[in-house]
Simulated assay, not measured.
Amino acid sequence: MALVQTGVVVLDCADPEELAEFYRQFLEAEDIEVSIDRVDIRAADGIRVAFRRDATATPPSWPRPEDSQQAHLEFLVDDLDAAERAVIGLGGRSVSAGEMPGPNEERVCADPAGHSFVLRHAKPRP
């Protein structure tokens, strides 16, 4: 029997209901659990993300060079342009300027609360 059943990424934010709705729509999540200071979502593929209320939460200031990124989420997508448009349409923003060259094509975005995440082009499965 495994010691750890699963992991959950938890983002602190001032308004967990609002931020959870952004990610619920982006991830097309159906499973939502709401408590007083936390909202958990689970997408169809099993990814789990939670949002914890922190009245003093401030957005990370990355990509300023003097600040670290601390942590970020990464989402594998088939179509970078479509995923980036979805993020912007849901109230997020693009942080990277256009396509970044290299073998791992990716785009950096931020959610409405300022948490950064990466859209990475998914490699075809064998």
Rank of each mutant, 00 (worst) to 15 (best):
L119Y: 01
S96T: 12
D45T: 15
L3K: 14
S61V: 06
L3Y: 03
D15Q: 08
P65F: 10
I32Q: 12
F26P: 04
T56Y: 07
P63K: 14
V34F: 05
A71C: 02
V39C: 04
E17Q: 12
D31H: 13
V49R: 02
R48E: 05
R107M: 02
G46V: 00
E17D: 11
L73H: 09
F117Q: 09
T6R: 08
T56D: 15
E17S: 09
E106K: 15
V108S: 05
S35R: 01
Y23E: 10
S96L: 02
A29R: 10
G98Y: 02
C109V: 06
R93K: 08
F117M: 06
S116T: 13
D15S: 07
M100H: 04
H72S: 14
T58E: 15
E33M: 10
D37I: 04
F117E: 10
R53Q: 02
D78N: 06
V8I: 07
L19S: 06
E84V: 15
R85D: 03
R64M: 08
Q70P: 00
W62S: 08
S35W: 03
E28R: 03
A50M: 09
A55L: 12
E99T: 09
P63Q: 14
A71E: 06
D45R: 13
P16T: 04
D54T: 13
L73I: 10
N104F: 13
E21M: 05
D78R: 02
H121C: 08
Q5L: 09
R53Y: 13
D45N: 15
V118T: 04
A110G: 01
I47W: 12
V108Y: 01
D67M: 09
E99K: 01
K123R: 07
L27H: 07
A29E: 00
P63V: 14
Q5A: 14
R48Q: 05
I41G: 00
Q70N: 09
R64H: 14
R125P: 10
Q69L: 03
R38H: 06
V8Y: 05
L11A: 03
S94W: 07
V9D: 04
R48M: 04
R52T: 14
T58H: 09
P16G: 05
P16F: 00
G91C: 08
D12F: 05
S116C: 11
P124L: 14
A82R: 14
H121Q: 06
I47C: 07
R125N: 07
D78V: 01
L11F: 07
S68H: 13
P65S: 12
D31A: 12
F51I: 00
H72N: 11
V108F: 02
L19Q: 03
D12I: 02
A43G: 05
V4G: 11
R85S: 03
P124Q: 14
A20L: 00
Q70S: 06
A71K: 07
A43H: 01
N104G: 06
L119H: 02
Q25I: 07
Y23R: 00
